[in-house]
Protein backbone atom coordinates (compact mmCIF):
# COMPACT_ATOMS: atom_id res chain seq x y z
CA UNK A 1 0.00 0.00 0.00
CA UNK A 2 1.17 3.53 -0.63
CA UNK A 3 1.30 5.53 2.54
CA UNK A 4 2.28 9.18 2.95
CA UNK A 5 3.47 10.24 6.40
CA UNK A 6 3.25 13.99 6.77
CA UNK A 7 5.89 15.05 9.27
CA UNK A 8 7.76 11.87 8.45
CA UNK A 9 10.99 13.38 9.72
CA UNK A 10 9.61 14.18 13.17
CA UNK A 11 9.87 12.32 16.43
CA UNK A 12 6.87 10.09 15.85
CA UNK A 13 6.98 10.35 12.07
CA UNK A 14 10.43 8.78 11.71
CA UNK A 15 9.38 5.81 13.78
CA UNK A 16 6.10 5.32 11.99
CA UNK A 17 7.85 5.48 8.62
CA UNK A 18 10.33 2.84 9.69
CA UNK A 19 7.72 0.51 11.09
CA UNK A 20 5.60 0.71 7.98
CA UNK A 21 8.52 0.24 5.64
CA UNK A 22 9.53 -2.83 7.60
CA UNK A 23 6.10 -4.19 6.90
CA UNK A 24 6.87 -3.74 3.18
CA UNK A 25 4.70 -0.71 2.42
CA UNK A 26 5.65 2.03 0.03
CA UNK A 27 6.06 4.96 2.37
CA UNK A 28 6.73 8.58 1.60
CA UNK A 29 8.21 10.52 4.48
CA UNK A 30 6.88 13.97 3.73
CA UNK A 31 8.31 17.14 5.18
CA UNK A 32 9.49 20.47 3.86
CA UNK A 33 12.97 18.98 3.68
CA UNK A 34 11.78 16.29 1.26
CA UNK A 35 9.95 18.83 -0.87
CA UNK A 36 6.47 18.27 0.47
CA UNK A 37 5.01 21.16 2.35
CA UNK A 38 1.45 21.23 3.60
CA UNK A 39 1.52 24.95 4.18
CA UNK A 40 2.67 26.05 0.74
CA UNK A 41 1.17 23.03 -1.00
CA UNK A 42 4.47 22.32 -2.65
CA UNK A 43 4.78 18.70 -3.79
CA UNK A 44 1.53 17.79 -2.15
CA UNK A 45 -0.52 16.86 -5.20
CA UNK A 46 2.27 14.71 -6.64
CA UNK A 47 2.86 12.95 -3.34
CA UNK A 48 -0.84 12.14 -3.07
CA UNK A 49 -0.98 10.37 -6.40
CA UNK A 50 -2.26 6.81 -5.90
CA UNK A 51 -1.90 7.15 -2.15
CA UNK A 52 -4.11 4.96 0.01
CA UNK A 53 -3.31 6.21 3.48
CA UNK A 54 -2.16 9.57 4.80
CA UNK A 55 -0.82 9.87 8.32
CA UNK A 56 -0.55 13.44 9.53
CA UNK A 57 2.18 13.75 12.15
CA UNK A 58 3.24 17.29 11.32
CA UNK A 59 3.70 19.84 14.03
CA UNK A 60 3.85 23.57 13.98
CA UNK A 61 7.31 25.15 13.95
CA UNK A 62 5.98 27.90 16.23
CA UNK A 63 3.87 27.28 19.34
CA UNK A 64 2.57 30.81 19.64
CA UNK A 65 -1.25 30.72 19.92
CA UNK A 66 -2.06 32.36 16.64
CA UNK A 67 0.72 30.74 14.65
CA UNK A 68 -0.15 27.26 15.82
CA UNK A 69 -3.81 27.67 15.01
CA UNK A 70 -2.96 28.98 11.58
CA UNK A 71 -0.54 26.11 11.01
CA UNK A 72 -2.99 23.33 11.80
CA UNK A 73 -5.84 24.99 9.92
CA UNK A 74 -3.94 25.74 6.76
CA UNK A 75 -2.03 22.49 6.79
CA UNK A 76 -5.21 20.52 7.48
CA UNK A 77 -7.18 22.28 4.76
CA UNK A 78 -4.51 21.84 2.12
CA UNK A 79 -3.80 18.27 3.02
CA UNK A 80 -7.43 17.21 3.09
CA UNK A 81 -8.19 19.03 -0.15
CA UNK A 82 -5.33 17.18 -1.86
CA UNK A 83 -6.52 13.91 -0.33
CA UNK A 84 -10.04 14.42 -1.61
CA UNK A 85 -8.70 15.04 -5.08
CA UNK A 86 -6.52 11.96 -4.95
CA UNK A 87 -9.19 9.74 -3.47
CA UNK A 88 -7.24 8.85 -0.34
CA UNK A 89 -9.01 6.14 1.63
CA UNK A 90 -7.80 6.73 5.15
CA UNK A 91 -6.60 9.81 6.96
CA UNK A 92 -4.91 9.31 10.32
CA UNK A 93 -4.01 12.12 12.67
CA UNK A 94 -2.37 12.28 16.05
CA UNK A 95 -4.20 14.47 18.50
CA UNK A 96 -4.13 14.90 22.25
CA UNK A 97 -6.17 13.37 25.06
CA UNK A 98 -8.49 15.98 26.51
CA UNK A 99 -8.23 18.52 23.67
CA UNK A 100 -11.89 19.38 23.82
CA UNK A 101 -11.90 20.09 27.56
CA UNK A 102 -8.78 22.27 27.47
CA UNK A 103 -9.98 24.82 24.95
CA UNK A 104 -8.57 27.62 27.08
CA UNK A 105 -5.11 26.50 25.97
CA UNK A 106 -4.11 27.87 22.57
CA UNK A 107 -2.39 24.72 21.35
CA UNK A 108 -5.46 22.67 22.21
CA UNK A 109 -7.70 25.00 20.24
CA UNK A 110 -5.45 24.48 17.26
CA UNK A 111 -5.52 20.70 17.57
CA UNK A 112 -9.29 20.83 17.95
CA UNK A 113 -9.51 22.88 14.76
CA UNK A 114 -7.42 20.23 13.04
CA UNK A 115 -9.77 17.50 14.29
CA UNK A 116 -12.85 19.42 13.18
CA UNK A 117 -11.50 19.87 9.68
CA UNK A 118 -10.92 16.14 9.46
CA UNK A 119 -14.42 15.32 10.65
CA UNK A 120 -15.98 17.69 8.13
CA UNK A 121 -13.80 16.65 5.21
CA UNK A 122 -15.61 13.48 4.21
CA UNK A 123 -12.34 11.57 4.01
CA UNK A 124 -12.54 8.34 6.06
CA UNK A 125 -10.46 8.93 9.15
CA UNK A 126 -9.09 7.81 12.46
CA UNK A 127 -8.14 10.37 15.07
CA UNK A 128 -5.71 9.01 17.63
CA UNK A 129 -5.66 11.01 20.82
CA UNK A 130 -2.48 10.42 22.74
CA UNK A 131 -1.26 11.52 26.14
CA UNK A 132 2.06 13.38 26.34
CA UNK A 133 5.18 11.64 25.10
CA UNK A 134 7.80 10.62 27.62
CA UNK A 135 10.28 12.40 25.37
CA UNK A 136 8.42 15.54 26.26
CA UNK A 137 9.28 15.45 29.98
CA UNK A 138 12.37 17.58 29.54
CA UNK A 139 10.41 20.19 27.67
CA UNK A 140 7.82 20.32 30.44
CA UNK A 141 10.53 20.74 33.02
CA UNK A 142 12.23 23.49 31.02
CA UNK A 143 9.17 25.60 30.48
CA UNK A 144 8.31 25.39 34.20
CA UNK A 145 11.78 26.28 35.45
CA UNK A 146 12.18 29.34 37.64
CA UNK A 147 15.84 29.71 38.60
CA UNK A 148 16.85 26.39 40.06
CA UNK A 149 13.32 25.30 40.77
CA UNK A 150 10.75 23.67 38.57
CA UNK A 151 7.21 24.65 39.57
CA UNK A 152 4.75 22.09 38.45
CA UNK A 153 1.18 21.11 38.90
CA UNK A 154 -0.06 17.91 40.49
CA UNK A 155 -2.54 17.10 37.68
CA UNK A 156 -2.81 13.43 36.71
CA UNK A 157 -0.30 12.52 34.02
CA UNK A 158 0.11 9.32 32.05
CA UNK A 159 2.93 9.81 29.51
CA UNK A 160 3.59 7.36 26.72
CA UNK A 161 6.83 6.39 24.97
CA UNK A 162 7.15 7.55 21.38
CA UNK A 163 7.90 3.99 20.28
CA UNK A 164 4.55 2.93 21.66
CA UNK A 165 2.87 5.88 19.96
CA UNK A 166 4.45 4.94 16.65
CA UNK A 167 3.29 1.33 16.98
CA UNK A 168 -0.25 2.43 17.71
CA UNK A 169 -0.22 4.88 14.83
CA UNK A 170 1.03 2.24 12.41
CA UNK A 171 -1.53 -0.24 13.67
CA UNK A 172 -4.53 2.10 13.41
CA UNK A 173 -3.36 3.36 10.03
CA UNK A 174 -3.39 -0.11 8.55
CA UNK A 175 -6.75 -0.97 10.11
CA UNK A 176 -10.08 0.19 8.70
CA UNK A 177 -10.96 3.83 9.36
CA UNK A 178 -12.93 4.26 12.58
CA UNK A 179 -14.39 7.60 11.52
CA UNK A 180 -14.02 8.57 15.14
CA UNK A 181 -11.34 8.79 17.77
CA UNK A 182 -9.35 6.35 19.85
CA UNK A 183 -7.26 7.15 22.89
CA UNK A 184 -3.81 5.90 23.72
CA UNK A 185 -1.79 6.41 26.89
CA UNK A 186 1.24 5.16 28.83
CA UNK A 187 0.95 2.17 31.18
CA UNK A 188 1.46 4.20 34.37
CA UNK A 189 -0.29 7.16 35.89
CA UNK A 190 1.52 9.81 37.97
CA UNK A 191 1.09 13.28 39.22
CA UNK A 192 2.84 15.58 36.87
CA UNK A 193 5.43 17.04 39.21
CA UNK A 194 6.24 13.57 40.49
CA UNK A 195 7.27 12.03 37.16
CA UNK A 196 9.20 15.11 36.13
CA UNK A 197 11.08 14.98 39.42
CA UNK A 198 11.89 11.36 38.76
CA UNK A 199 13.11 12.21 35.28
CA UNK A 200 15.38 14.99 36.54
CA UNK A 201 16.74 12.69 39.22
CA UNK A 202 17.57 10.01 36.66
CA UNK A 203 19.35 12.47 34.44
CA UNK A 204 21.25 13.97 37.36
CA UNK A 205 19.64 17.32 36.79
CA UNK A 206 20.14 19.51 39.89
CA UNK A 207 16.85 21.40 39.49
CA UNK A 208 14.35 20.89 42.29
CA UNK A 209 10.74 20.19 41.51
CA UNK A 210 8.16 22.10 43.56
CA UNK A 211 4.54 21.04 43.48
CA UNK A 212 2.61 24.28 43.23
CA UNK A 213 -0.82 22.67 43.44
CA UNK A 214 -2.04 24.77 40.56
CA UNK A 215 -3.87 22.72 37.94
CA UNK A 216 -2.12 24.27 34.98
CA UNK A 217 -0.81 23.13 31.65
CA UNK A 218 1.06 25.49 29.38
CA UNK A 219 -0.31 28.48 31.17
CA UNK A 220 -3.97 27.46 31.00
CA UNK A 221 -5.99 26.25 33.93
CA UNK A 222 -7.20 22.70 33.41
CA UNK A 223 -9.10 20.14 35.41
CA UNK A 224 -7.18 17.64 37.45
CA UNK A 225 -7.91 14.75 35.12
CA UNK A 226 -7.86 16.62 31.81
CA UNK A 227 -4.61 15.14 30.53
CA UNK A 228 -5.46 11.49 31.15
CA UNK A 229 -7.98 9.30 29.36
CA UNK A 230 -11.39 9.20 30.97
CA UNK A 231 -12.51 5.88 29.59
CA UNK A 232 -10.89 2.85 28.05
CA UNK A 233 -7.67 3.85 26.34
CA UNK A 234 -5.20 1.54 24.67
CA UNK A 235 -2.11 1.46 26.88
CA UNK A 236 1.49 1.33 25.75
CA UNK A 237 3.88 -1.40 26.93
CA UNK A 238 6.90 0.74 27.82
CA UNK A 239 7.03 1.90 31.45
CA UNK A 240 9.05 4.92 32.54
CA UNK A 241 11.93 2.81 33.81
CA UNK A 242 12.04 0.70 30.67
CA UNK A 243 11.98 3.81 28.57
CA UNK A 244 14.79 5.34 30.60
CA UNK A 245 16.95 2.23 30.13
CA UNK A 246 16.40 2.45 26.38
CA UNK A 247 17.40 6.11 26.36
CA UNK A 248 20.65 5.18 28.12
CA UNK A 249 21.31 2.41 25.63
CA UNK A 250 20.89 4.76 22.70
CA UNK A 251 23.14 7.36 24.19
Amino acid sequence: MKIVVIGGSGLIGTKVVNQLRQKGHEVIAASPATGINTITGEGLAEAMKDTDIVIDLANSPSFEDKAVLEFFQTSGRNLLAAEINAGVKHHVALSIVGVDIMQNVGYMRAKKAQEDLIRQSGVPYTIIRSTQFLEFLKGIADQATQGSEVHLSDVAFQPIASDDVASFVAKYALAAPINGKVEIAGPERFEMYEIVARYLQHSNDPRKVVANGRPEYFGGEISHAALVPAGGAALGAISFEKWWDKQLQKA
Binding site: A45, R77, A82
Partner: peptide, 13 residues
Protein backbone atom coordinates in the same frame (compact mmCIF):
# COMPACT_ATOMS: atom_id res chain seq x y z
CA UNK B 1 -16.25 25.74 -2.97
CA UNK B 2 -13.36 23.36 -2.34
CA UNK B 3 -11.15 25.45 -4.58
CA UNK B 4 -12.31 28.72 -3.05
CA UNK B 5 -11.51 27.36 0.40
CA UNK B 6 -8.13 26.02 -0.57
CA UNK B 7 -5.14 28.27 0.04
CA UNK B 8 -3.18 26.26 -2.54
CA UNK B 9 -3.91 25.34 -6.16
CA UNK B 10 -6.06 22.27 -6.32
CA UNK B 11 -5.29 19.61 -8.87
CA UNK B 12 -8.27 17.43 -9.69
CA UNK B 13 -9.30 14.83 -12.19
Amino acid sequence: NRILNSPIPLLFT
